[in-house]
Amino acid sequence: MEKPIYTLEFEKPLRELSAQLDQLRQRSEENKLDLADEIAAIERKISATQREIYSSLSPWQKVQIARHPKRPYALDYVEALFENFQELHGDRQYNDDRALIGGTAFFQGRAVMIVAQQKGRDTKENIQRNFGMAQPEGYRKALRLMRLAEKFGMPVITFIDTPGAFPGIESEERHVSEAIAVNLREMAMLRVPSIAIVVGEGGSGGALGIGVTDRVLIFENSYYSVISPEGCAAILWKDRAAAPQAAEALKINADHLEKLGIVDEVIPEPFGGAHNDLKQSADALRYALLKHLNDLRALSVEQLLDTRYERYRHLGVYEEAGATQH
């Protein structure tokens, strides 16, 4: 087993076991002892513990995996699945947002437009990428690229991974809310197929701002929510520490979202999270993307627009004259 460099709280038993295993191996080598039986026992224990931990993850534990610093980010998938990615910069108005990027690329030999929220791998890159929190310019660049895709008949593939749109003075002064709102309206009217993939965090309006697509896919441990579990806990439980309860109550995990009809497909992840095997995660995504793109390509523009409108038109549950409506 590969040594975990970064361990989540609930993975601690695994870290301890793996330390024991290392010690045994070292002792066996140094003292030329045959500890094969002991080593095998610990290895069995490790895989049993793994199964125990990872097959019954709580909503909050999944959020931890979605935020894992080793989790594959959009550009990891772009590199794994696409050829000749050409990043296109800037909103042509103010700035180039490094938290929301995009450009042309080829998927299985055909041109597509990538629009992606990107977090940083280390502190330096995170500062540059504003921890994946886009400003108005990011959303306006995204719209520019999506219109470019429309003009040249390319499907749009968006990667969602943000704690939320940036809440700051500059963001408000340049009207991040308007930038998101315009994207919602324009994405609903876009005359080319579109697919969104929630690869990590689907943080509220900041996520939806590139998420009004024909299909929405989500990785198994990703979440998509109207508010962060901590934010919800602070307001409704008056205590940020109630985030685990909030995560459960909000039904933000992939399996819930599929049941609620919000997402079209859950992309499976390797045991313990996508970071444990990027290739396996990317292969699963390739397979799903190919299938959905083919389905969408078969539709006329009118069918595409009508189906997309209906998809969002019917999201919601309310009562009318005593009956529950969807």
Partner: peptide
């Protein structure tokens, strides 16, 4: 939850 978010769309 997520249904509220989808009202925006």
């Amino acid at each position: 939850g997520i249904f509220s978010l989808m009202q925006m769309a």
